[in-house]
Write a protein that binds this DNA or RNA. Structure first.
Length: 299
DNA sequence: TGTTACCACCCTAAGTACGT
DNA sequence: ACGTACTTAGGGTGGTAACA
């Protein structure tokens, strides 16, 4: 390979091809036609003296040499992107930027909602694309650039991603405003006798760590609804005699419509943080967004 | 089970735009 | 004028679904 002749743009194409493993999709991502990317792939094959990607049943399969290239190539390109982005000042008032954020609906309400309101006044050209948090796909989504930032428990982040702690969350017990059995000083027994709503995002199960804590105290609660959405819980609770343990920031601004109480026994909370990929670490706009989120949760 | 139609994907060929 | 890299057009291959 002659580095004096090598078109470095080809390396961006190679990185995209190796991530997508599909010439058509890579072409779409690169804003080129499929034949143009096919031609670039041929030049890359010539430069590296290797097929790099072999046609498969669906898309292309990378050769061993191509797989060997992916990590160092990605690191090198991320360094270049970071170096360029660091020297480009981010003017929030004028910048055009779309940031893709993945999180649960609880964090959409607790973090993204105030972020959006802040952006409208401070950075009107910045748009947010919300994505569902898919832990199995997160690493690949971030590598592809489909997700820029995830809001989640930092301990659950895939290895290799950057994390920053935002806040520690705790649970509160909620019921409708005039719930006849909710009063300060509720006992564990009374708690267990209520009809509970829980959130189970994955399997729709009816057991959470709270049930283990209750069992240790010799009690068992009656879970009548396993919800797939946090936001649905205050809604159903305010129209029934059901109760629920929910993250405090989910209902902080609904105190007028709900009865909020401390849980009658200790329930472990959880940490919330930001997770992002090395590729967006040095990007001045992405950094501005991350700092904006930090200042929001600290406020 | 074999045939057919359709779709996804990649390739080559030919024409075009642009810089030197 | 020439070289490079793009686009559109069109063809080949292989998988899948519908149907007799």
């Amino acid at each position: 390979m002659d580095s004096k002749r090598l078109d470095l743009n080809l390396l961006v194409t190679l990185e995209t091809l190796l991530v997508e493993q599909n010439v058509t999709k890579a072409a779409t991502r690169l804003h080129l036609s499929q034949p143009a990317v096919s031609a670039q792939l041929n030049r890359l094959r010539h430069e590296f003296d290797d097929p790099l990607l072999i046609p498969a049943q669906r898309g292309m399969t990378p050769t061993a040499k191509a797989l060997e290239l992916l990590d160092p190539l990605r690191q090198a390109l991320d360094q270049v992107r970071g170096a360029v982005a660091r020297h480009r000042n981010f003017d929030a008032a004028k910048a055009k930027l779309t940031v893709a954020i993945a999180c649960t609906d609880y964090l959409q309400a607790a973090v993204v909602k105030p972020l959006i309101l802040k952006l409208r006044t401070r950075a009107p050209g910045v748009r947010v694309a919300l994505r569902n948090l898919d832990m199995a796909q997160l690493d690949a989504q971030m590598a592809r650039g489909d997700v820029d930032l995830a809001l989640m428990t930092p301990q659950a982040a895939p290895p290799g991603l950057r994390t920053r702690h935002l806040f520690d969350e705790h649970y509160v017990l909620i019921g409708r405003r005039n719930h006849p059995r909710l009063r300060d000083g509720i006992t564990v027994r009374e708690f267990a006798q209520l009809e509970h709503v829980i959130v189970s995002l994955g399997d729709g199960g009816f057991v959470t760590p709270v049930d283990d804590a209750l069992a240790a105290l010799g009690h068992r609660r009656n879970v009548v609804l396993s919800a797939a959405s946090f936001l649905f819980v205050p809604e159903i609770v305010s129209h029934s005699d059901f109760v629920a343990l929910v993250p405090e920031r989910l209902v902080r601004d609904r105190a007028a419509k709900l009865k909020l109480m401390d849980c009658p026994f200790p329930v472990e909370g959880f940490a919330v943080g930001m997770v992002w990929h090395e590729r967006s670490h040095g990007h001045s706009g992405q950094r501005w967004i991350r700092e904006a989120i930090v200042s929001l949760v600290d406020a």
